[in-house]
Simulated scan of single mutants.
Amino acid sequence: MDEPRRTGRPADILLVEDNPGDVRLTREAFEDGAIDNTLHVTTDGVEALDFLHRRGEYEDAPRPDIVLLDLNLPRKDGDEVLDEIRADPGLERLPVIVLTSSQAEEDVAKSYDLRANAFLTKPIDPDEFIGVIKSFQQFWLSIVRLPPCTEE
């Protein structure tokens, strides 16, 4: 299997997604892909930030190599999560890819204003959704050189 950044370890991916169907499809796509990875899932913005800051039940969580972030989340939305990530010196270089059902131009603009690394719209068709995830995986975990982790 290809190895991210030639580190010899699986890529750690944090998926922040509250829709169980989208979580299932994302898992399926990553499992079918050629790149070794570990997919971690949180279901709202508060949990995502706890994971990233290693708080509470996530105190032993690994630092993810990349975050897939939905915008429409309970408790704290994706924009708020992205804003907090970019405001934290220990997380500000962490690649964050917005993966959402929104096609609204204002959501695209705001995500990039908040320094998202990319904005992907989830296709409605399950096969197309899996294709998008596989393309993400190939590009971001095989071709792109990710920044080194910055510890807090």
Rank of each mutant, 00 (worst) to 15 (best):
K110W: 02
Y58E: 12
P10N: 04
A116M: 02
R86L: 07
E84A: 12
A116R: 07
I85D: 04
E3Q: 05
H53A: 07
G78S: 12
L52C: 10
R75Y: 14
I85S: 04
V108I: 03
E3H: 02
Y112L: 06
G45E: 10
A104L: 12
P64Y: 04
L120W: 14
I13D: 01
L99S: 06
G33N: 04
N117C: 07
D127P: 14
K122R: 13
F119H: 08
K134C: 01
R145S: 15
E3V: 07
V96P: 02
G8P: 01
D12I: 10
T150Y: 04
I85V: 14
D113N: 07
D44L: 06
P147E: 07
H53F: 14
E151Y: 08
A109P: 01
S135Y: 11
E47M: 10
A116S: 10
D36C: 00
D32Q: 03
V108W: 02
D77I: 02
L94G: 13
I35F: 08
L25M: 12
D70R: 03
E59C: 13
I13S: 11
I66E: 05
F136V: 13
E80P: 06
L82C: 04
D32C: 07
T100D: 01
L82P: 09
F119K: 08
F136S: 04
R86G: 05
S102E: 11
I143Y: 07
A48E: 03
R63Y: 09
T121M: 10
C149L: 08
L120R: 09
E31D: 13
E57A: 15
P4I: 08
P4R: 01
E105W: 10
L14S: 03
I97N: 11
K76E: 09
A61C: 11
A11V: 05
V46W: 05
M1W: 09
T150N: 14
R115S: 15
